[in-house]
Design a protein around this nucleic acid. Structure first.
Length: 271
DNA sequence: CTGTAGACCTGGAGGC
DNA sequence: TGCCTCCAGGTCTACA
């Protein structure tokens, strides 16, 4: 489900919970990607949510005495619900604020997500400390990306999806940014020109920004914490459009498996 | 060090 | 209906 825009939309939706205090945590299933700390209910009781940040696709929810590091995996979802909201099959964790709600509920059918607790600086956590730059930060520019991956034989799509190079770009936005940049996803990074890197960085920023503004891409199941759909999926130029006409040249959009991930591109527009 | 394949897990879609 | 196969927004780990 979630790439950077969907995670950021989720984070923004959690802001109404700021400064609220947790009175209870119910864990119905501990086994996410990594097991949830069994002491979490005890640890979080009476702690106040003081800050909501994001790094890469991780939501960092800072409490009085530490930080929850939340990743939504492929199918994870957070929602803000009233206390009486019925529990569904994949609702694994409830964070209950005050005595009478609201609940912050973590739902995740595939359980590829994670909920980790740290008392240290989360940026130094082993999952976060060696990540690449945020795509919207100024230190992610054409020069940086060119220097970082120009020598690699790996295909350009895999390279921009590698969080060591730049974070937050998943399968949808990689295909979209490469379309706007007129670069075929299977091109090797070492064969991409400096001018193309410049376009690629420019369009990665545009696509990510635009997707955040439009509430993310709601494919089969993404919706924000209030249950609202994003509508960036209506803007997809190539992702999920195999067999349909390219909006730019009216050729047929091609789907091809590249590095185990399905990829979409226009053979005519993208060289 | 580099790049790739496998692993984790559930559910939905489509074929027979 | 039911069973089977394939596919899905991620990314860590093991291995060549």
């Amino acid at each position: 489900m979630p790439e950077l825009p969907e995670v950021e939309v989720t984070r923004l939706g959690l802001i109404p919970l700021l400064n609220k205090t947790i009175c209870r945590v119910d864990i119905r299933n501990h086994s996410l990607r990594w097991p949830i700390n069994k002491n979490l209910p005890k640890i979080l009781k009476n702690q106040q949510l003081v800050e909501l940040k994001r790094r890469s696709k991780y939501i960092l929810a800072k409490f009085t005495n530490g930080t929850l590091i939340i990743h939504l995996g492929m199918s994870g979802h957070l929602s803000i619900l009233p206390l009486t909201s019925p529990i569904q099959k994949h609702d694994h964790v409830d964070f209950i604020f005050h005595n009478d709600g609201p609940i912050l509920r973590y739902t995740d059918p595939r359980r590829f997500g994670s909920i980790l607790w740290t008392q240290n600086n989360p940026m130094e956590h082993k999952l976060l400390f060696n990540l690449g730059p945020e795509p919207l930060d100024n230190d992610f520019d054409a020069n940086y990306l060119y220097k970082k991956i120009k020598g690699k034989k790996q295909c350009i799509k895999s390279a921009i999806m590698d969080a060591h190079n730049v974070v937050g770009i998943g399968n949808i936005y990689a295909s979209e940014a490469l379309f706007y940049s007129k670069i075929r996803p299977q091109r090797r990074s070492c064969n991409v020109t400096k001018k193309e890197y410049s376009d690629l960085v420019k369009f990665i920023k545009i696509v990510i920004k635009d997707a955040i503004i439009k509430g993310g891409s709601s494919m089969s199941d993404f919706f924000d914490v209030s249950g609202e759909n994003g509508y960036f999926q209506n803007e997809h130029k190539v992702y999920g459009r195999e067999g349909m006409l390219c909006y730019a040249c009216e050729s047929i959009i091609t789907q091809k498996r590249i590095a185990q991930r399905s990829s979409f591109f226009c053979k005519k527009c993208q060289k």
